[in-house]
Amino acid sequence: MPELEPMQNFLTELRRGSLTLAVLGSLRQPRYGYALLQTLQEQNIDIEANTLYPLLRRLESQELLTSDWDTSESRPRKYYTLSRKGKEVFSRLLKEWESMQASISAVCGKGENHE
């Protein structure tokens, strides 16, 4: 199907920005990389390991996340948590997300059938 590829691009574009929001939102409590991946995938958020791990690192270098190596278990794990700056950014992004959702609904006509 020739329409498949542009459709995939639209979806990727649409999801890209919201991934950061989802990651920040689920790190209000400490989580390690793979656990976070599973949490997100359980909520049907389409994210791959090779996107998430670099994203976590990037958010950490932007000081939105803090990290801690837990060495108490048999193998060390890196736990990420929202930093203070991360919390601020998250709440602003969430507000923006909500207002955007409202705008989109208003523009596209919430619940109306466009067929």
């Binding site: 793979y34 656990a35 791990y53 193998r75 794990r77 890196k78």
Partner: peptide, 14 residues
């Protein structure tokens, strides 16, 4: 070194 450590741990978790 950081990325190596992280990746190793993440892959083992998976």
């Amino acid at each position: 070194e950081d990325v190596k450590k992280e990746l190793r741990s993440n892959i083992c978790d998976m």
